[in-house]
Amino acid sequence: MIKHHPESTMIQAFTAGELPASLSIAVSIHLELCPHCKAIAAKMTQALADEEFNEELELSSNDDFSAMMANITAEPVIPQPEPKNVASEIEVEEKTYTLPRALSRFADSKWSGLGNIQRARLPLEEGEVHASLLQIGEDSAIPHHTHKGYELTLLLDGYFEDESGRYEKGDFIILNGEHQHSPYTAEGCLCYTVSNAPLHFTSGVSKLLNPIGRFLY
């Protein structure tokens, strides 16, 4: 059961098209897995459409749309096939996963590994905001760390646990500088993550792991 959902203000910003692509992908994946949030998003989309399109605005005499309209209706209409979701599969470390629709185009991403962790970075080009797919191998822990910025994790497969509980497929988890945690996965998992700063390892020897923090970012 999904227990962690995006806040309604985030769903609202998503439906308005105002979130960055990296976060929009996360919300979109969550909606595909969570009928409750999907229904809320549909309601919000309808309200936004009502708001934009109920304004009383008539064609102004300065605007000559007639040529534009004639060009459009001159375009041939090709019958639209019922679009189908082409399942896109990836294989990482001998495990096969089906990617959600919002990630399907990234099936060919290049993976690189460090220890038990495999990472594929998404080429979204949003400056300091990095989006990645992370696969964490079985029986792995990521030592105590904090987040300098924020880190969003959307669990795509498997599960993991930290001090606050157990997370499952579809859970939408946002952590920021106030949180400190050390997630552990028994059977391994695949996540989509978005963060705007490297992880920062906090305890003793694990400070030596700060290169991993930059790898995970």
């Binding site: 959902h5 806040e7 909606l31 009928p35 409750h36 229904a39 549909a42 309601k43 309808q46 919002a102």
Partner: peptide
């Protein structure tokens, strides 16, 4: 990259039928 169609598919905007779950976190 024209991501939008993957984020919001045109043929499948959800039905605004919601099961209202009053103690829901959101």
């Amino acid at each position: 990259d024209n991501l939008s169609d993957d984020l919001w598919p045109l043929y499948e905007e959800a039905e605004p039928e919601s099961d209202h779950d009053d103690d829901h976190l959101m």
